[in-house]
């Protein structure tokens, strides 16, 4: 959950966002996410389909990985800051995976009256494999 307000003056290029660590993912969660998102690709819910495709069972939705990264961002910056948010999916997730989200401020600038930061993001599983890479642009309030 969002902590205290982060101001433009609080962040610096090269600075890190607070690491976010997910709860272990579960197959029940994949079913919940299928229902909530409306993505009923059987790869995420039907074991035999996941086996047929070669994953040995069900895998998590890529968009669930993105949602985990989003949790890291909103916990840090709140829910008013994001202007852009993008990810590339690198490794599939499975039940029991724990996702750690890290971010670095790549750029700090003022544009169109907004105080912006660009953030480079990476999410890893417990084996250190990259699950997603991403980037975000956020506009932050200023103390002045």
């Amino acid at each position: 959950m969002a902590g205290k307000q982060v101001f433009f003056e609080d962040v610096n290029e090269g600075g890190s966002m607070p690491e976010f660590v997910s709860e272990p993912l579960t197959e029940t969660q994949f079913v919940m996410y299928a229902g909530a998102s409306g993505d009923f690709n059987p790869l995420h819910t039907v074991h035999s389909f996941g086996e047929m495709v070669g994953y040995g069972g069900v895998i998590g939705h890529g968009m669930l990985s993105m949602a985990v990264v989003g949790r890291g961002l909103t916990d840090w910056l709140g829910n008013k800051a994001l202007k852009k948010f993008g990810v590339s999916f690198r490794t599939v997730t499975k039940a029991k995976d724990v996702i750690t989200v890290k971010g670095v401020v790549a750029k700090k600038y003022t544009e169109g009256g907004n105080n912006c930061i660009d953030i480079n993001l990476v999410a890893e599983n417990q084996r250190g494999e990259t699950v997603v890479t991403g980037n975000a642009t956020a506009a932050l309030p200023s103390k002045s």
Binding site: L43, M63, K83, G86, F89
Partner: peptide
């Protein structure tokens, strides 16, 4: 083909 597609990337601009 559902068995051959992957979601490669996703971006949102708000």
């Amino acid at each position: 083909d559902l068995s051959k597609i992957l979601h490669g990337g996703q971006q949102y601009e708000y």
